[in-house]
Write a protein that binds this DNA or RNA. Structure first.
Lengths: 347, 347
DNA sequence: GTGAAAGCGCTAACAC
DNA sequence: GTGTTAGCGCTTTCAC
């Protein structure tokens, strides 16, 4: 039932078998360059092997207070954006010998804080937050208690290390791409502008139009009014469909649209296709994220890459690298990349 | 640099502040129903709060040998099949107060075994293996060392608990669905039949044709000859495209095809569409897995659901429930479900 | 070079 | 009811 009886050999067993002290065993198996006679060392190694001994990490960590675990808090692993991020984190972590604890918050603030408290109790090296904790006081408190924090895509650079993505630039690039293709009537489709990053994306988009002396027409801006948290993105998909339907129904239509994430864009394409419209023949579509699904749509979706894997990798490196000593927090900013596929065309 | 100096309050600090003993503190904060006077209890609670005290899990675990962590080993979280599985595992785990350590093996046997050894060292409650460890001796050895194992989709039911999916039935159902739609020339497209589960799927498919007195034509069976492990499924997608191209090029064509996973099916649809063929007008397509992407294709893909989330949930429950006491291993078998969408039609 | 012993933070006998 | 103490498995002084 419970794994309560310990049946694994301890350092004592090894010491006894090798006819030496536990200190020596610890030195041989742990500290690489501590002077121990060849002969004794060999005996210890052999004893350890014979017993299938592996040092108990709990004992070690309790003593040394050096954890080899990091945690990552995300809303939901089945939302297609996060697997890439987590993979990046995990790859970087493994490279340094760390393990990663996965925490899906389902965007529940309470769950998040509970997770963080747990991590505190486990003395993990630190946690990467890619969810909406948003509470600076809380962050500072737990940092004070010795937990390293790296924030991804959050407005927390004041109080911890953070990895950022240049959303403004991304929105700008999307618009620019369409303008370069001679589009003039360019629409925007998305979820409500309730989060910092969405707002920046939108602002970058609008700014680009302005810079090119194109007026941005309110009527070409299709935004959902309610936000629903969805399991895996199906909400965004449906939202894309709904907004597209609205767009198709109106008398004036843009010749190109930028969607604030790939799944929304896929929903838009879906509905456009359903209405007999061609992509990019009748409408060019640009997405945002460059999730895997965006390359297997028909036609493949032009989108803005967020370097999600890269982001995770850097986050883990920053976290593990540790930087508590100097009191200045680092803030990485990643640049968007345009991924041109077949859902856009020159007008 | 290292989180080496401990700055968190311990049970001693709380005891001192509350003017009592550590035993009492431990009792108040741990064991729910141990008799302690109201007044003392209150003092302890207050002291704990004042110090922001949270019990150190390492100390506790070292003492009690009861871990609240489980691990899951998968090939790669960015392969769209796994997020759902992991989510199921995590949800079930959290419900019981457990945390999950994510281990991506990248199908590297060495990495897998290394992960398992690490888990052994951390005294995790157990590990869920959804990757190709395949080595019964190894499993038995580590089980002997006290690690619970639950295998997902693997031929290991002899030596540990396992969660299975009825692949044969799934293949059978796919064929049956198409036969019910009056198709007679039914093809099969997939990756090489190198794994147990793929073989069962295929056999179920063939069996159904036989049962309905339809002959299965070799020429309608399009299988890749080489297998490449892919990051996120792009290999399957390309394979689907390649096989479809082959199919389109031949003089005899099936009127319907069953693909051994959704991504392959999406690749097939892609190529069919590219060649100007209609789905399901010219060819009906059935996938397998029911990953998220399958519902946002155009047309949405008819597929066989593998209850991935469910699988993860059960795996975690079995693992946490623990069953070491009785020496018989349990083996859950999940049933396939047909998800009928718009990529298939009556002939 | 090697070993004895203290102690990381906690729980659970055991004594009172 | 409450406190004292041993000890989980380990590392690391400090003696020798």
């Amino acid at each position: 039932m419970e794994n309560t009886k310990r049946n694994k050999p301890t350092i004592y067993d090894v010491a006894k078998l090798a006819n030496t002290s536990i200190a020596t065993v610890s030195r041989v198996l742990g500290d690489a360059d501590y002077p121990v006679t060849m002969e004794l060392k060999k005996r210890v190694l052999q004893a350890a092997e014979e017993l299938y001994y592996v040092p108990n990490l709990l004992g070690r960590q309790l003593k040394t207070n050096k954890s080899m675990d990091i945690a990552v808090i995300i809303p939901n692993i089945s939302n297609p954006f996060y697997p890439e991020l987590v993979l990046g984190i995990e790859d970087a972590a493994r490279m340094e010998g760390y393990h990663v604890l996965l925490c899906s918050s389902h965007r529940d603030l309470h769950a998040e804080q509970q997770y963080i408290t747990s991590m505190l109790q486990k003395e993990v090296k630190g946690v990467i937050i890619a969810s909406q904790i948003g509470n600076i006081d809380f962050i500072q408190k737990i940092q004070g208690m010795g937990l390293n924090i790296v924030a991804i895509e959050q407005n927390l650079n004041e109080c911890c290390n953070s990895i950022y993505f240049d959303y403004f630039k991304a929105g700008f690039m999307a618009a620019e791409h369409l303008i370069n293709l001679r589009h003039k009537d360019i629409g925007f489709i998305g979820s409500p502008l309730t989060r910092e990053n969405r707002i920046s994306l939108y602002q970058g988009f609008v700014r680009c139009l302005k810079d090119h002396n194109l007026l941005f027409r309110e009527e070409f801006c299709y935004l959902a009014t309610v936000e629903k948290e969805s399991h895996n993105g199906i909400y965004e998909f449906d939202n894309g469909r709904n907004m597209a339907r609205q767009m198709i129904g109106s008398k004036n239509r843009p010749t190109a649209v930028f969607c604030n994430n790939d799944i929304t864009a896929i929903g838009v394409m879906h509905e456009l296709l359903n209405s007999g419209m061609g992509i990019p023949g009748d409408v060019s579509v640009v997405g945002f994220d460059n999730i895997f699904a965006s390359q297997i749509t028909h036609p493949p979706l032009t989108t803005i890459d967020q370097s999600t894997y890269e982001m995770g990798k850097i986050a883990a490196q920053v976290l593990i690298g540790g930087m508590k000593k100097q009191q200045t927090y680092v803030s990485h900013i990643l640049k968007p990349k345009l991924v041109e596929r077949a859902s856009t065309r020159e007008l």
